[in-house]
Computed example of a mutant assay.
Amino acid sequence: MRVGRISSILGGTAALAFALTACGTADVGGGGEGGGDGGEGGGDTITIGVKYDQPGLGLLEGDTPVGFDVDVATYIAGELGYSPEQINWEEAASANRESFLQQGTVDMVIATYSITDERRQVVDFAGPYYVAQQDILVAADNTDIEGPEDLSGQVLCSASGSRSANNIVDDMGIDAELREAGNYSECLELLGNGTVDAVTTDNTILAGFAAQNPDTYRMVNNPFGEEKYGVGLPAGSTERCEEVNAAITQMWEEGAATEALENAFGATDFAFEEEVPALEDCA
């Protein structure tokens, strides 16, 4: 497994330099005007759910979301026959990703959406397009927390709809007090004012926040677990899943995925994969 280490300074504008097959900028829009073409691509528009509050991954800057997930989404849409101007962006918070897919609000979700057996009961997944690990973010001057074992008795924040905190409390059996927030931006506010002692989620998400505020927050850089980022699709999307998997493979083989990672993250000592993830079979 090859691993690269990111050393560039975080900037949403840098992510826009990503050399995509479908280059350009898409306007924010959304709300049910998806391609609806049964997997053939090239319809009028495609609606994609991304995060709007995660630096380096999906962050709204002006009228346009930018970041690694947005670049991945733009690349995949291009391979499906959609130009950037045909993409409608929809904010997809952790708690509403399944409902957006079930209700037809979006055609796909690319929003640090981990593939799990539980989620597979209600939606389909293509990918993974990236395999992240879980980590911990603390205040910059906090030297007491260096790993999950140090969270016992501490107040731990995670976003609603995410299982990150439960992985520590339930699966690892660590006695931390859980605090749920609407999203990770709220967790960061709680960490900044001392309401919580730590925030836990995927290292990609935490790296973006740490790079944006290096004097305020520190990523522990002691990764554990594994989170396979998938492209969420409505149930029964076998043909579209296969098309998306082909696009993901090409994105990595061309080096476009690595370029997007390098553009997206700052100097947080974050180690990132440089090989195409092992894709799972489409149902």
Score class of each variant (00 low, 15 high):
27 D>L: 12
107 D>Y: 04
73 A>M: 08
106 V>A: 05
61 E>T: 13
59 L>K: 08
29 G>Q: 06
138 V>H: 03
120 R>D: 05
9 I>H: 13
44 D>G: 15
99 S>E: 07
13 T>P: 10
111 A>L: 03
41 G>D: 10
31 G>M: 06
118 E>C: 07
90 E>Y: 06
110 I>S: 00
35 G>R: 02
44 D>W: 03
53 D>N: 14
40 E>H: 15
43 G>K: 07
42 G>F: 10
12 G>R: 02
40 E>R: 11
11 G>K: 07
31 G>E: 06
89 W>R: 00
7 S>T: 15
75 Y>T: 05
88 N>G: 09
69 D>C: 12
113 Y>I: 00
15 A>L: 10
68 F>W: 07
30 G>C: 07
137 L>S: 10
110 I>V: 05
28 V>P: 10
25 T>I: 12
10 L>E: 05
102 Q>L: 15
5 R>V: 14
24 G>W: 04
9 I>T: 13
95 A>I: 11
8 S>N: 15
102 Q>T: 14
25 T>G: 09
34 G>A: 11
27 D>F: 13
18 F>N: 09
123 V>E: 00
129 Y>K: 04
101 L>E: 02
97 R>S: 08
59 L>S: 05
93 A>V: 09
106 V>Y: 04
128 P>H: 03
93 A>P: 13
88 N>H: 07
20 L>N: 04
65 P>N: 10
35 G>E: 07
108 M>Q: 07
74 T>C: 15
120 R>I: 10
95 A>V: 10
68 F>M: 09
35 G>V: 08
121 Q>G: 13
138 V>T: 05
72 V>I: 11
115 I>R: 00
79 E>S: 09
115 I>C: 04
66 V>I: 12
56 G>R: 03
55 P>H: 04
22 A>F: 07
26 A>N: 06
116 T>G: 01
106 V>W: 03
69 D>P: 02
133 Q>C: 08
22 A>R: 08
98 E>N: 15
109 V>T: 03
20 L>D: 01
75 Y>V: 02
90 E>H: 05
33 E>H: 14
31 G>Q: 12
55 P>M: 04
114 S>F: 07
47 T>H: 03
104 G>R: 03
52 Y>E: 09
90 E>F: 06
115 I>A: 03
101 L>H: 02
84 P>I: 06
102 Q>D: 09
92 A>G: 08
128 P>T: 06
85 E>D: 14
83 S>Q: 14
130 Y>V: 01
68 F>Y: 10
23 C>F: 14
26 A>R: 04
124 D>V: 08
92 A>Q: 02
58 G>R: 02
50 V>N: 07
89 W>H: 01
6 I>N: 02
135 D>G: 04
